[in-house]
């Protein structure tokens, strides 16, 4: 398994690890059976993601993609976070081995899942804004 230096860096020194106690949105994706669970906490002020934390159970790529995804959305407006693709996460990490691409999908979904929770808490139907959050492919 050849990981890029950036992946190893984000794995060994993950950014934004932890929880936010008074989070405005929490999302969890993946399952233990497949060996990956990502949990994302968002703090949102005036439509901007003012803080983000994550917890991940999974391989090196799962930790690194979670870490990179939080970096890419921290301090950004919600609209930008909604547009974050797994491809952008992979590119920011200088690539991932093919068998680990699903980890980046999980990172994208974890953010969307947390934003869905945020909208639901606001009494807004998240579906038209966030869209459907699919199951991770490799589990099926």
């Amino acid at each position: 398994m050849l990981y890029s230096e950036k992946v190893l860096d984000h794995f060994s020194n993950p950014r934004n690890v932890g929880e936010i106690e008074d989070a405005d949105g929490i999302g969890e994706v993946g399952n233990a059976k497949c060996g990956d669970i990502m949990k994302m906490y968002l703090k949102i002020d005036n439509g901007v993601i003012s803080d983000v934390k994550f917890k991940t159970f999974g391989c090196g790529a799962a930790v690194a993609t979670s870490s990179m995804a939080t970096e890419l959305i921290k301090g950004k407006p919600i609209e930008d976070a909604l547009k974050l693709t797994n491809k952008a996460v992979v590119e920011a990490l200088d690539g991932l081995p093919a068998v680990k691409l699903h980890c980046s999908v999980l990172a994208e979904q974890a953010i969307k899942s947390a934003l869905s929770d945020y909208y639901t808490r606001q009494g807004i139907d998240p579906l038209p804004i966030v869209g459907e959050i699919g199951e991770c492919e490799h589990c099926h």
Partner: peptide, 14 residues
């Protein structure tokens, strides 16, 4: 329990 093997190996390697 609660940890994933590959992460464990990478950290041990470090």
């Amino acid at each position: 329990e609660g940890v994933e093997g590959e992460s464990l190996l990478l950290m041990l390697d470090m």
